[in-house]
Simulated assay, not measured.
Amino acid sequence: MRIALEDLHVALAGRTVVAGVHLVAEKGEIAGLVGPNGSGKSSLLRTVYRHLAPRAGRVLLDGRDLVGYSPAESARHVAALPQERGGDFELTVGQVVELGRLPYQRAFAARSAADRAAVTAALARVGLLEHAHRPFAQLSGGERQRALLARALAQEPDVLVLDEPTNHLDVRHQVELLALLRAQGRTTLVALHDLNAAASVCDRLHVLHAGALVASGPPREVLTPELLATVFGVRAAVVDHPLTGDPLIAFDHRGPADRDPDPDPGPARGAAAVER
């Protein structure tokens, strides 16, 4: 399912936080949202999964305005893993994941075979099948993140909306989660702070800065040293990853992007050195 945002404006407490954004994620594409804190990424995603209503503009699913869907209908098409996780659930892991099946169930109806199969498959995908009967509140932060991702997968949506899904995950589970997203083949909108992860997993990147869209395109075209300096305020070189060939950002951790160059910088020091 193709998703498109047309001239999207979002306001919080009377202040515009997203202004005039146009972006597209084609069917089966992973589209990443990157930008500094406060750039509007989370607010934009909340409009897609209907936690916020846009002040202006439209969210279109295959050309149909999202406001024309009933809540249950939109939940069958769009599933979200937001940053706001809520408090502890007094439920087991399996029961949390079963919540993803609510859009398909009639009131007071028993779980169907399709519901049980979807829950089992989702738990298996995130490596938590053996933890189905554990209390959710006893999970580690990373395990909770994976359980909530399983809940979204159990919805069997056409579109996944993920806000910082690698938070609380160790390196191994970050790699596994990003590989899982690639394997899903679902249209995905994902906000990521890790620019190297975004460059590796995303087909297209959309860069937000102060609520405006400032760049869109394939990661190699978008993640330039000039953009990294302007938007993120860092000096960096963009090189080829030695294992995958993806763009790899080598940050200069010795100073900000606008520092004065050394009077006599000497030869370049590794991949992090760039010309001023």
Score class of each variant (00 low, 15 high):
P157V: 02
S200N: 11
R172A: 13
A212L: 13
A273P: 05
E73Q: 06
A72N: 07
H22F: 10
R101C: 03
H209S: 15
A210I: 03
V222R: 04
A113C: 01
R116M: 08
L99C: 05
P256S: 05
A197W: 03
R259D: 06
A183F: 03
D260I: 06
A80W: 13
E26F: 03
H133T: 15
D252M: 08
P54G: 12
D260M: 09
G87R: 03
F251C: 01
T187I: 10
D246Y: 11
D194E: 14
V93A: 09
L60V: 08
V214D: 12
I3R: 01
Q83P: 01
D158N: 08
R76S: 07
L148A: 00
H133F: 11
L33G: 04
D65A: 12
L5W: 05
R144K: 15
G266C: 08
A107F: 09
A4F: 04
H241R: 02
L227D: 03
H193Y: 14
R46I: 06
G35H: 12
A11D: 09
L81D: 10
A53Y: 02
V24A: 10
G28R: 01
L33A: 06
G28H: 01
R220Q: 09
L243M: 04
L149Y: 12
P135F: 02
R106E: 04
L153D: 00
R106H: 11
L195T: 10
G211E: 06
L213E: 12
V159P: 00
V231A: 06
G35I: 09
P219W: 03
T244N: 01
Q95I: 03
T166E: 11
L139N: 05
